[in-house]
Amino acid sequence: MTTDLAIEAVGLAKSYGSTSVLDHFDLRVPRGGVFALLGPNGAGKTTTVRILATLTRADAGRIRVAGHDVGTQRREVRRRISLTGQYAALDEAQTGEENLRMMGRLLHLAPRLARRRAAELLERFDLTDAGRRRVETYSGGMRRRLDLAAGLVGEPEIIFLDEPTTGLDPRSRAAMWEIVAELATGGRTVFLTTQYLDEADRLADRIAVVDGGRVVADGTAAQLKEQVGGRRLDVALAATAGPEAFATVVRRLGPRAVTADPARRTVGIATDGTAAHVRALLDEIDAGRDRVAHFDVHTTTLDDVFLALTARPAPAEVRPIATENPIATEKRSEHV
């Protein structure tokens, strides 16, 4: 087994009753840096984190975390990880300091050391003044910071953060981003889940996009953006073209249409941005040269990637668009 991977999951499967949450889920997370698992609600992100953090057992699959098997070496894994979930995992009626000291004691630090460690963490997370107050008096941002501090009392090699900024106001969110970026130093790995593209784009060294219980794409933000074409052509149809004409255009484009906004009669198409390709697309959409009102070419955002990879025109099973996109295939082969 290679040792440069913090997490390796192969063929992971998990279902609750007859509902399959994860299926053929493969993931490789390199050691060090920030790794983001990006996906919409219900994609299986939390289940994945719970399995990787030994809280839930997978139905199938081989999983190694921090070099140990999650199924057979739980203790070894637990010694090397920490988990901070979506909801603050703290005792409301204890003070911040008491909570941190309790974590230290549970990690079997001597009382004096646990006390010192708690003081250090309170200082580091700007909670020294609040340390003597009960957690129930804390604001949402303070709670998250304390929660994160509680996960750092030990020296975890891998820090799991399940949606660390969900529900935070913009300022607390920015503060949390700074903290997360700082955590991923000294060889530590931060594994976070998020439904926010800007969060993944800003923080993560690598991103895996998860949808419908499997990883549909992974790579750096730049690589992912190139998978759906380096650029996006937005075409707006003229007002004279009715809704049916718009629907026809979208249908003909098929999976190449990464966005479609009927209200504004605008469709977004992945492109490499060359004049030849843009011209070809315009001709294809508008052979009679009377339907397109205007167009716009811009750099792909992670938003486009997300939409392209997770959009589902019909409830039936649909392949990720990127794999059928001629440009994407072309681009990807350059990278391999």
């Binding site: 203790r75 637990r78 979506q86 995992a89 703290l90 005792d91 549970l106 996960g151």
Partner: peptide, 13 residues
């Protein structure tokens, strides 16, 4: 029902 139990579990308590 509180999240703290998950933390205890993941700490091997």
């Amino acid at each position: 029902t509180t999240g703290v139990i998950d933390r205890f579990r993941s700490m091997d308590v």
